[in-house]
Amino acid sequence: MATYTLNINGKEMQVEVDPSTPMLWVLREHLQLVGTKYGCGIAQCGACTIHLNGVAVRSCQLPVSAVGSQEVTSIEGLSENGDHPVQKAWLEVDVPQCGYCQAGQIMSAAALLKNNPNPGDAEIEGAMSGNICRCGTYVRIKKAIKLASQSSAS
């Protein structure tokens, strides 16, 4: 066990955990931020996607000991009231079915648009290729990303 002071969603938070504990479980179990989801634990499904200094990473593969003072953003910190352009586009297009994969999808999409505000189809497919949706909402996810891209441009 070791104590870590983390910078999560703009706040300093302290946890006492084993250094090997992935951020996924630190967020979910130690900080009760359960929006970040467990889907595979091996960086294959994207359900656990968070931002580390604004870059999308799989939190199931990120040990707490590697985080240091870097900025961690989880779905709960993407916006104050669910009004990030990507979240708004998701609601507008009514993307989710079961919804389980969607926080990860949104975090991947938000990181993509931050880097590349106007991505083409192939760029969207590339950036989203790490996120699985068993319910099959891909067509809507792509539509929502394009909508968010337009609305943040205007």
């Binding site: 009760q32 931020l33 359960v34 929006g35 970040t36 989801k37 467990y38 989880s74 779905i75 709960e76 993407l78 916006s79 669910g82 979240q87 998701w90 609601l91 009514d94 989710p96 919804g99 389980y100 969607q102 926080a103 949104i106």
Partner: peptide, 21 residues
């Protein structure tokens, strides 16, 4: 009509069995 749980889903609110605490 939009999904009644839409906002909770896109903001990561506890909704699923896995989120039970």
């Amino acid at each position: 009509r939009k999904n009644v749980d839409g906002l909770k889903i896109v903001t990561g609110k506890p909704l699923f069995g896995m989120d039970t605490e």
